[in-house]
């Protein structure tokens, strides 16, 4: 239980070395050890999507991966997406459409949306609704989020 593991990884473009408890999950490591509190913890079992982030370019649940498994990986959190400009268009569209209220689901929602947009997803409302169904939002009616994602796809492909 108390076994520790040495890891080296890149987080938002910076090299990180740490010794972590074997049982520590990735999102807790990012939040507690690196103070990257933009990734949120909603359910701790991969259902709500609030901890969604990017690992080697793949969209991943930060609560379903151990910090130890991130050894050698490239992690991008919401802070990294924002600072690098990758999520600028989505941020603008979410703001314009009021596609967030309390903002707790928002970093994960944005990461999922970015995965959809970057994969060449269509501005198809049903497909977008399917794609973001792994991200719970308890405040909006989801409609404004779908609108915002459609806006970004339509703006970047015209």
């Amino acid at each position: 239980m108390s076994r520790s593991i040495d890891i080296k990884l890149r987080v938002n473009g910076e090299n990180v070395s740490a010794t972590v408890p074997a049982r520590l999950n990735l999102v807790d490591f990012l939040r507690e050890e690196l103070c990257l509190t933009g990734s949120h913890v909603g359910c701790e079992h991969g259902v709500c999507g609030a901890c969604t982030l990017t690992v080697d370019g793949d969209t991943v649940r930060g609560c379903l991966m151990l910090a130890a498994q991130a050894n050698g990986k490239e992690i991008t959190t919401i802070e990294g997406l924002a600072d690098s400009g990758q999520s600028t268009a989505l941020q603008a569209a979410f703001t314009k459409r009021n596609a967030l209220q309390c903002g707790f689901c928002t970093p994960g929602m944005l990461a999922s949306a970015l995965g959809y947009v970057n994969a060449g997803g269509a501005a198809d409302r049903d497909a977008i609704r399917q794609h973001i169904s792994g991200n719970y939002c308890r405040c909006t009616g989801y409609q404004s989020i779908v609108d915002a994602i459609c806006d970004v796809i339509e703006e970047t492909r015209t």
């Binding site: 802070e79 941020q91 967030l100 970093p107």
Partner: peptide, 13 residues
Amino acid sequence: PRADAARLLQGRG
């Protein structure tokens, strides 16, 4: 649009 959306959208809540 809400002014505080920007903060929440950048993980700065």
